[in-house]
């Protein structure tokens, strides 16, 4: 395999090194720079939706504001992670996000830290979803269930299962975990698990040893099918399996 091409560049005056073509945000975070971000997660591809990870990049004498999560690093670029322009843009973005997701603790905290007391925009009733696409990406790229996607566009844009019918959802909860605004809720009642936003309720498998329901049967069978596991692989819950 060919050697990885490394490039050197500067973040806030500090010399850093990274493999050519990697995205700027993870490199900056690795080096300990703090850049706020909502729609980026290391497990999935970058998307550039939330716009919070704005930085200033100077390349060949030209400076521009750009999202760092989907900016491939290059030799000799000069990155500024905090400037007045960045702060101004970020405050506006946070106000807009706050109007979409007024209940989100994470956005409230970010807004507070940026010095925003309240948003000037009228609050939207969209259940705190900021359309960052993390749930959609994790479902497709990590889980592989492809149960949800973006729907429509413009002001009608939404995310959900096709035809509002969550037939491919395995209720694994990856979307619940990754959602930055906690707008996808999961409930477990008795031996049933519900992903509230997708309206998916599945029966859970009971552990053959301790009797506790631990994961949706549909999900377990789906995994067994996908990676050719023995049929009885998930008879025991993770706790009992570890104890054997």
């Amino acid at each position: 395999m060919a050697d990885k091409e490394m490039v050197r560049f500067a973040i806030d005056g500090q010399e850093v090194e990274a493999e050519k073509g990697t995205m700027l945000l993870p490199v900056a975070l690795e080096y300990g720079f703090e850049i706020p971000h909502l729609c980026y997660h290391e497990a999935v591809s970058p998307y550039g939706a939330c716009r919070l990870c704005l930085v200033e990049v100077t390349k060949r004498g030209r400076t521009r504001l750009t999202t760092s999560c989907n900016y491939p690093v290059d030799e000799g670029i000069d990155v500024t992670t905090d400037s007045e322009d960045i702060q101004r843009a970020r405050r506006m973005i946070l106000e807009l996000l706050l109007a979409r997701a007024p209940h989100s603790e994470r956005i409230k905290k970010l807004a507070y830290e940026a010095g925003i007391k309240e948003t000037r925009f009228s609050l939207m009733d969209v259940g705190d979803c900021i359309l960052c696409g993390l749930c959609e990406r994790v479902c497709r790229e990590v889980v592989g269930a492809d149960a949800i996607s973006f729907i429509s566009r413009g002001d009608k844009r939404d995310v959900g299962p096709p035809f509002a019918d969550p037939i491919a959802c395995i209720a694994c909860g990856a979307c619940v975990y990754i959602c930055p605004t906690d707008c996808i809720k999961m409930e477990e009642r008795g031996d049933e698990r519900t992903i509230v936003k997708w309206n998916r309720t599945l029966k859970m498998q009971e552990c053959k040893s301790c009797g506790k329901p631990f994961a949706p049967l549909f999900q377990l069978n789906w995994i067994i099918d996908k990676v050719n596991l023995p049929k009885d692989f998930y008879d025991l819950c993770p706790v009992c399996r570890a104890g054997r």
Binding site: R140, D146, A147, I148, S149, F150, I151, S152, R153, P161, P162, F163, A168
Partner: peptide, 25 residues
């Protein structure tokens, strides 16, 4: 028609979510 979209997804072996995303866009 919904049924046709489901058949398209099945015949092309792609997720229905992808077909639906495009069809609504």
């Amino acid at each position: 028609p919904r049924k046709t979209l489901e058949e398209v997804a099945e015949r092309l072996a792609i997720p229905l979510a992808r077909v639906y995303k495009l069809a609504t866009f």
